[in-house]
Design a protein around this nucleic acid. Structure first.
Lengths: 348, 348
DNA sequence: TTGTAGGCGTTATCAA
DNA sequence: TTGATAACGCCTACAA
């Protein structure tokens, strides 16, 4: 079965390719009867137009792309639903494009803008501290959504929506301090790893400092793993296990993600300990499992739906008003107190 | 900044587009100096070729696409890693293409084959009971991987790799029966929902039958939810809550996915009950959380890495040997006994 | 080693 | 309402 082209259909119908094109694209200037006949043949042969040719020739598309780095990250699940719903509600086509870990998301965006003649772009995940200057090669509006990136970059060059990782990290560690914990371990990721680990570590340090708790490097835990999957339950489990087997004393753990926190809890259980009676454990993100775990995990809930909605709102604003002004929105995270943390003096 | 084309680069370099094309595509017949100069300009202006034009013109690509329906499903995470690794190891380009819930994956495949001049396709997720006949419009090798589809279709028309959902479902329910449970509830999904729920229900029924346990429709639980997200923890929570609040007597729950099982456990905890002391809970899939939950959840582990590896192996076989023979491989699931199930007579 | 010209499959323009 | 023709951006014979 050779690949059909519009010419084949035109020949079979005894009309010109132009007419077939009109039928396919719902042009008004075509006879209903002719159109029906053509659509019948198209259906019969299951003809599907070549998108490369269409994209190449068309002046514009109606597509908004969501570029996501780390598609398997649970954290993005609910955001994707919002993006899809909002984009379709506004009569645009939704294109979800996963970006590989080793790809530069801006290059991908430039490429995709050309290839699909995009109307707008949402960046999800990824870290822009490198190559922000490349953003100038984008000719359509875009918004960075929850991408951790360094503070140094000039933010008047782009719009973003996110939470303040430093502040939220501070918030939850401060909460642990206020519960009376003074030996708080943090499960983070290797410093070399380009991600939000660093910022959350700063928040941790500052919270300790403000609570007059000396910083102890022995409480900062991480390890290198081959698959570089640092935000997995397994990673949390392994790092927590090493911590438990060390002779480092601690009464609480701050894991920089909920998945890590889950792994840490399991490590404690497996070593015969209890959460929160023996150790308090806190996470970060507020994904489903934090709520459904047993015990439920104290965490910082990132308002993901709101972040997504605001991101897309800003994008539409730029799209409709042709505004050059870049908008920035920082959402507050919410401290969700679960069953996994208790005051130090209530410990068993 | 207007979108650059190959012509712009050619003009800036004072050469023809052909020469620029040669530089881009690493053709041998080009002067090293010329090439360097061109690449320099390309880098300076961050020129990125238009993929639509390339795809249109090129005779063939080197791309293998993985079409996945339900990209947010945890279940696929590890499979994706295998696919990516194996495809790249074999010097092909990996293209991950999410398929929306309301899209027909075969139409998407036909479209993508043309657009990207694909070499091969892996289908992940989705249900093929409808429109299998459309598969004949595909001109490249493809393999169905873990897609639940009805048994009726003639399987000599395509290759697939999967587990026997009926058998595995039977296996775990039989295990519950052998533990002495006779009132086993199943948390499934609405019958109207096109998915594996039905097959797993059959396995449940057959296991009961073989253990001389009467089937009680009151123990088959599901509900309609607006977002149609049936495999969420929340769904499991809600259905289990209704079950607990009903006056239906039961001692064990078989949830047709681990995520549902997690939700069910939480519902039991919230109602003051214990797992497994008051109720045994079993899941299905063997995703991370089944292992890391507290208690760990008894489940059927689907050998996802093996499934992925075998799928891609078959695809390469078809690719290299040009074989028309369709291969079928059914993997056994593994019953993982966790802490969430105990014998009926050990119940508190 | 480089350039010219034609065409990939489709849509846009213009004329009929 | 329809059709002929050019053009989208790129690659590739073929010619120089």
């Amino acid at each position: 079965m050779p690949l059909l082209t519009i010419k084949d259909i035109a020949r079979k119908c005894g009309v010109s390719v132009t007419t077939v094109s009109r039928a396919i694209n719902n042009h008004p200037d075509i006879n209903e009867k002719t159109k029906e006949r053509i659509m019948q043949v198209i259906k019969e042969y299951n003809y599907i137009p070549n998108n490369s040719a269409r994209n190449l020739k068309r002046i514009e598309s109606n597509t908004i792309a969501v570029l996501i780095k780390g598609i398997t990250n649970q954290f993005f699940n609910k955001m994707l639903k919002v993006f899809e719903a909002e984009i379709e509600k506004n009569k645009y086509d939704f294109l979800l494009h996963p970006v590989e870990e080793d790809e530069n998301e801006i290059d991908v965006a430039i490429s995709l803008e050309k290839e699909k003649k995009l109307k707008g772009i949402i960046f999800l995940g990824g870290y822009f501290s490198h190559s922000v200057d490349k953003l100038k090669y984008l000719n359509v509006p875009f918004v960075l959504s929850t991408g951790g990136f360094s503070e140094e970059v000039e933010s008047d060059k782009y719009s973003y929506v996110m939470v303040d990782d430093f502040k939220e990290s501070y918030k939850i560690v401060d909460y642990l301090c206020k519960l009376g914990h003074r030996r708080i371990a943090i499960i983070s990721v290797p410093e070399s790893s380009q991600n939000i680990g660093k910022t959350r570590l700063y928040g941790y340090k500052k919270a300790l400092q403000d609570n007059n708790i000396p910083f102890d490097p022995a409480l900062v835990r991480y390890k290198d793993v081959e698959d570089r999957d640092f935000f997995s339950m397994r990673y949390g489990y392994e790092v927590a296990k090493e911590l438990l087997q060390s002779n480092v004393n601690f009464s609480a753990i701050f894991a920089i993600s909920d998945t890590i926190a889950v792994g840490a809890c399991k490590a404690i259980f497996d070593s015969g300990g209890k959460v929160p009676e023996d150790y308090s454990v806190a996470g970060y993100d507020g994904i489903d499992i934090a709520h459904y775990y047993n015990p439920s995990i104290t965490t910082i809930r990132q308002p993901v739906e709101e972040i997504a909605r605001e991101s897309i709102r800003i994008l539409f604003e730029k799209l409709n008003n042709n505004k050059k002004i870049e908008k920035h929105k920082i959402f507050d995270g919410e401290l969700i107190v679960g069953q996994s943390t208790i005051p130090y003096n209530k410990k068993s």
